[in-house]
């Protein structure tokens, strides 16, 4: 068979690569712009190594903080696992896990394959590539390790939950207080957990792999609940991406002195 896609010799002779008349380019363009904005922002913040802690708030980009060069956080998740030899920003140690989780996520794969790689740019719009091997070869065959990043994302979400609990203190570490930052952290952690648990790998592990749901009623129920979240995986992916950036930005504003955290009680 000869290649050539929609212009293949045996197919209807139509020279246009597509005949769509709607604004098919809008969704991939917005997706690419949104992801690019996050990549630029998070790269700046991850490498900056400053203004990531303002008691009692720690930026989600820097938690857990695993090097000796971390700012001291009272009762916070800073453990000097990496010792003093780590001279770069401590955010780089831990960000690899949420980054890998999102990079191999089934939703984000669709988003960046369409938005950045035009494979395809939109449905029934011819892609510009001459050859295509999908996820059958290195490096894209590594997308199959998504579940391992899911396993890693769960403890990271657990630590961010701990950070949220710690945010119910004031700047002198006294418990029983709440500021605007606490609210930002609560919203962020709810969205992070919802996104993490709505993951397709989670859905498989929790029950999707079973052949007989009737023999595992508890897992079946859990699979149904995860399935309901999974229906909104795209929405949760974007909402949690925005919320984690906003939570970090909030800490940046408070830590840099640009903004005073308003306290509710």
């Amino acid at each position: 068979m000869k290649s050539g896609g929609v212009r293949n010799g045996t197919r209807a002779a139509i020279t246009a690569p597509h005949l769509r008349t709607d604004r098919w380019w809008l969704a991939p363009a917005m997706t690419a712009a949104g992801l690019l904005a996050f990549v630029v922002y998070s790269t700046w913040r991850a490498f900056s190594n400053t203004d990531y802690y303002a008691a009692p708030y720690v930026s989600p980009f820097y938690s857990p903080c695993l090097a000796e060069n971390c700012e001291p956080m009272r009762n916070g998740p800073n453990w000097e696992v990496f010792g003093s030899w780590w001279g770069l920003s401590p955010a780089l140690i831990v960000l690899i896990f949420p980054l890998g989780f999102r990079l191999t996520c089934y939703y984000y794969r669709k988003a960046y394959y369409r938005g950045f790689w035009a494979s395809p740019p939109a449905c029934a719009v011819a892609e510009p590539h001459k050859k295509y091997s999908g996820e059958t070869r290195f490096p894209l065959i590594l997308q199959n390790i998504h579940r391992y990043f899911f396993y890693a994302a769960v403890p990271v979400a657990g630590i961010l939950t701990y950070d949220t609990v710690l945010s119910f203190r004031d700047e002198h570490y006294a418990w029983g207080h709440m500021g605007l930052g606490t609210l930002v952290f609560v919203v962020n952690i709810v969205l992070i957990w919802a996104y993490t648990l709505s993951c397709h790998s989670c859905r498989h592990i929790i029950g999707g792999k079973l052949k007989h749901f009737s023999k595992h009623p508890v897992r079946y129920r859990a699979w149904q609940l995860v399935g309901r979240l999974n229906d909104r995986h795209m929405l949760l992916a974007w909402a949690s991406l925005v919320s984690v950036a906003l939570a970090d930005f909030y800490v940046y504003l408070v830590a840099s002195g640009a903004f005073d955290d308003p306290t509710f009680f």
Binding site: S3, G5, C123, A126
Partner: peptide, 15 residues
């Protein structure tokens, strides 16, 4: 099957 770019844009993948 028609919309899937794997075969729509790459006849050689049909095998």
């Amino acid at each position: 099957q028609d919309t899937c770019h794997v075969v729509r844009d790459h006849e050689e993948n049909k095998t």
